[in-house]
Design a protein around this nucleic acid. Structure first.
Lengths: 218, 218
DNA sequence: TCGCACCGGGGCGGCCCGCCCCGACACCAG
DNA sequence: CTGGTGTCGGGGCGGGCCGCCCCGGTGCGA
């Protein structure tokens, strides 16, 4: 059977490229460019595989996965991203994806990856698989954790300095103010801030402030 | 005796204008364009009267007044502002100023105002004096107040809608996001935000976030 | 009638953001 | 010795949001 595939990516060029590469090998039953459209379309079509871009405007691809995962258990999720950063991979796998390929993948390899995910298999590039294994190894063996309702796992990814910068960012200080307060240059603050946003899967300081507020880190 | 006057205003043109208008009537012993320079210069010269601009970059003229008031009790403070808004007047008078004149004042009137303040007198335009009296009347007669350490009087100045916008602003939402959340246009949010900043004597959303954080309004 | 709160529009300069590139040095592990 | 990571820093750049300036309208209550 040719697998029925749903395509989620905010760039029209990527979508058409994927369509072209997948050719007749699969049945593309729909596509969406944002979170809302994806949720609606996937609910309507119930595909075998969802090709999901990780960096989506409005919550990220993970939002789609998390809202539909329990509702549609038959759907297999394959992350398709420009990023090969460890935190991106781990996050989307934690959310329930069965594979992760970057957009540098070749057409034939993508066809193969989709086919394998459709067959209940798991697809990773070797290096990305290592990320997942490392993260899994860092997990405590069997203790289900006290499950503190107000802690975000992403916080652990931050270094001490990054946590400092993160707090000041969340409180609304400008880069210049943070720099003079920490006795470092504006550019260094920029670097830390950029790392913080990437690691926490956020895209700007406003989201950061809200994230910190909901996690009671202010 | 010709009073010794210190001049604080961030606009060089205003400073030179005041110098020209005051002419030989007073002795201008120094001037400053920002908070830090003003604090330093006033400490060094200890003038009889400080002509203080309310809207100074870096904390506002009130910051100067509040840091030096107890330290230099002999100094009389005369607010000189473009603003005739009630909240500006009340705030600076609360801080300890002995008078408040707008920059539309005539040269002779300014000379007279400085002279009167130097003589321990109080100077107001009639309408501004009304603001102060109203605010004073709104004060509870004699009760020294429980003095809750975490309440800012400025909060009372806000309308219900303004408080809503204020909270969302402090949490880092953009104007567009606030608008869609409250079902009003971006421009309306702008209006509310502008009013909030003015009433709270703040100059941008970052200061607002910090203000809200220290007052536990998040 | 006047003020005020609330709702909008147009325009605009500035600056801060987020990101891209690049480099340095120190430290530690393999 | 090499590589990875954290911290520090620079140049450049486009976009967007901010803060503010005009202006208008409605409705309500003093």
């Amino acid at each position: 059977m040719t697998p029925r595939v749903y395509l989620v990516d905010d760039h029209a060029m990527v979508r058409s490229g994927v369509r072209a590469e997948l050719g007749g090998a699969v049945d593309v039953v729909g596509e969406a460019a944002d979170v809302a459209g994806a949720v609606e379309g996937i609910r309507a079509t119930v595909p075998d595989v969802v090709l999901l871009d990780v960096h989506l405007p409005g919550g990220g691809g993970r939002a789609v996965l998390e809202t539909l995962r329990a509702e549609l258990p038959s759907v297999r999720w394959l992350a398709l991203s420009v990023s090969d950063a460890a935190e991106d991979v781990i996050a989307v796998i934690r959310a329930g994806a069965r594979g992760y390929v970057t957009k540098s993948i070749s057409g034939p390899d993508l066809r193969d990856a989709v086919a394998r995910v459709a067959d209940e298999d798991v697809v990773f590039s070797p290096r990305l698989a290592g990320f997942v294994l490392d993260a899994f190894a860092a997990t405590t063996p069997s203790a289900p954790q006290p499950e503190d309702p107000a802690t975000d796992p992403g916080l652990d990814l931050l270094s001490a300095r990054e946590r400092e910068v993160m707090q000041l960012l969340a409180r609304g200080y400008t880069y210049r103010e943070i720099g003079s307060r920490l006795f470092i240059s504006v550019k260094t603050v920029e670097s830390h801030a950029s790392n913080v946003l990437r690691k926490l899967q956020l895209s700007n300081r406003n989201e950061l402030t809200r994230w910190a507020a909901t996690n009671r880190l202010l």
